[in-house]
């Protein structure tokens, strides 16, 4: 009997958490069309986007380089090293760009958002905003939400582009694949709508999830040092798992049939 009660209680708890998170998301969405908020969004794009740029550039470059190196050693044994370009480009555009950017973003920006909001809560800054008749959802949550959703697809695009250049660096400049075939076979294979746009859609969905999880975890954190550290960890774990799970679903929907 007891475990049934526990099950019921935990289900109710989860549901009310989801409900609260949805309410918060709604608050964040509704608060978008305000001219006054645009400087705040720019400020936050700086924090979540620009400050994540370095890690995205470096990891994009290295992942592209590693893929070219690995791909070359396999492809060259079939005499198909000309296909290195499309291999690197498709892997980056369809999968690694959105997914790795999402994971890095969750670790770099998501955890920072959770900790920031959690600390604002712990130091009563959110409460004091409310008492100053300023809605923290509009003033604090919404700009961060939109900044994240705007920044991440941009980061993913930059990641893919840098990765393809990294692949060129290793594949063409170092291993001697023909530059013409690197680009031309890539151009013949990569499709704008199917590959690039789908990748952007993916990263947009991941951004929604990461930012949503991060902000909600911060907003609902228990305002103690222990609570905030737990919330930060949960942000990274939950959003990473959500990215990987959603990636499968989205891939199945986008590329699975046909």
């Amino acid at each position: 009997m007891n475990w049934l009660i526990n099950l019921g209680a935990s289900t109710l708890g989860k549901l009310s958490g989801l409900g609260n998170a949805s309410l918060m998301l709604w608050g964040g969405l509704v608060a978008f069309p305000r001219l006054k908020n645009i400087p705040l969004i720019i400020q936050q794009i700086y924090v979540v986007g620009v400050q994540s740029l370095l890690i995205i550039l470096v990891s994009g470059l290295f992942i592209g380089m590693v893929m070219a190196l690995q791909g070359y050693t396999i492809l060259v044994s079939y005499g198909a090293e000309g296909s290195l370009g499309p291999m690197v480009a498709l892997t980056l555009l369809r999968e690694l760009g959105p997914v790795v950017t999402g994971l890095l973003f969750a670790g770099r920006a998501g955890s920072a958002l959770t900790a920031e909001i959690g600390l604002m809560k712990a130091t009563e800054q959110l409460s004091s905003l409310e008492m100053m008749a300023v809605d923290p959802l509009r003033r604090i949550i919404a700009p961060r939400f939109w900044a994240g959703v705007i920044s991440m697809p941009m980061l993913a695009l930059i990641f893919s582009a840098v990765g393809i250049l990294g692949g060129h660096l290793v594949g063409v400049d170092w291993l001697g694949v023909d530059s013409g075939s690197y680009w031309s076979i890539m151009q013949a294979t990569v499709d704008w709508d199917k590959d690039v746009v789908n990748g952007v859609i993916k990263s947009f969905v991941f951004a929604l999830v990461v930012v949503w999880v991060a902000l909600y975890k911060g907003y609902s954190a228990i305002p103690t040092s222990e609570g905030i550290s737990k919330a930060t960890t949960e942000t990274v774990v939950f959003s990473s798992l959500a990215i990987l799970g959603l990636d499968f679903v989205l891939t199945a929907l986008m590329f699975g049939i046909n």
Binding site: T123, E124, E130, M131
Partner: peptide
């Protein structure tokens, strides 16, 4: 709330 204000402990 604009007519009230609160000084928090911290």
């Amino acid at each position: 709330r604009r007519k009230m204000s609160m000084l928090f402990q911290s």
